[in-house]
Design a protein around this nucleic acid. Structure first.
Length: 265
DNA sequence: ATGCCCTCGCCTCGAGGA
């Protein structure tokens, strides 16, 4: 089973690229972020034509998240995180697909820092941690995946010293991510590639992709019940080089069908 | 220190992104 994430930076402006990649990669599940489209402008017909069922939470101009499933309808279990009812940003959507809870998220950027946007990012992170702890208590397969807008370590930034005071790399934000992972989650890409420089985002500015000046900000966090099934984790870097690409690349993990149990268990 | 490039809106510039 292949589970993927892709910050599309505008689903309608990106539709051709998205359909091309779906045809090429055929993920079983795909979480999308930054739809930048209101609910009624989500291109459901085109995605159904490509063989996918979908649930989504749109928003005019900004944010917006979706979950696609190949050959089936994702079973919606939640829209939005608990803890701040007045928060109207479309940043979290959750579904069950093939027995796995898929939480698709788009964490706030937080710049400029300091400021209200940074405060909102930290609050959102806290809400995510509180909710993630509840999910872990269920002891079921859970994948919390999407654009976290955090580079967890210096290995995840092309030039760490340039990013020290940025909301994506501030120590408070790295701490928040680490505390989340330390609840018992597995960072899938880093787990399988402990020493590699891996990026999932390259700025449109400064010829960043050609220079490989990237950031690793799109992450898969796996509950123990699904971490035991992790087989592969890869970034579709070449897609970032396509014409009219998003500034993020798609990222995916491959899961074994059955848990890999220790021999003596 | 800032803009760079790109997306969206309701409209040709501004806001936001990271």
């Amino acid at each position: 089973m292949k589970v993927a994430t892709y910050n599309v930076n505008g689903i309608n402006g990106r539709l051709e690229v998205l359909l091309r990649w779906l045809e090429e990669a055929s993920p079983d599940v795909l979480c999308l972020q930054e739809l930048k489209a209101p609910q009624e402008k989500f291109p459901i017909k085109a995605l159904e034509g490509a063989g996918y069922g979908a649930i989504w939470q749109g928003q005019k101009s900004w944010n917006g998240v979706a979950i696609l499933a190949r050959g089936q309808e994702p079973h919606l279990t939640r829209k939005g995180l608990p803890g701040e009812p007045e928060d109207e940003h479309s940043r979290y959507i959750e579904a069950i697909v093939d027995g796995i809870v898929i939480g698709g998220l788009y964490l706030p950027n937080g710049n400029p820092c300091p400021g209200p946007k940074f405060d909102y990012k930290l609050r959102w992170f806290k809400r995510l941690r509180d909710y993630a702890a509840e999910l872990l208590e269920l002891e079921v397969p859970v994948v919390l995946v999407g654009d976290y807008n955090v580079m967890p370590t210096e290995l995840d930034v092309y030039k760490p010293e340039r990013w020290t005071n940025d909301a994506l790399f501030r120590v408070e934000v790295r701490d928040a991510f680490r505390h989340l992972v330390d609840q018992g989650w597995t960072d899938a890409l880093r787990h399988l590639h402990p020493d590699e420089r891996i990026y999932t985002f390259w700025d449109y500015f400064r010829n960043a992709y050609a220079r490989d000046a990237g950031l690793r900000i799109d992450h898969f966090l796996l509950s123990p019940q699904v971490a035991s099934r992790l087989a592969k984790a890869e970034v579709e870097k070449h897609v970032r080089g396509w014409d009219h690409s998003s500034d993020h690349a798609p990222v995916w993990i491959e899961l074994h069908d059955e848990p890999m149990m220790p021999a003596d268990e």
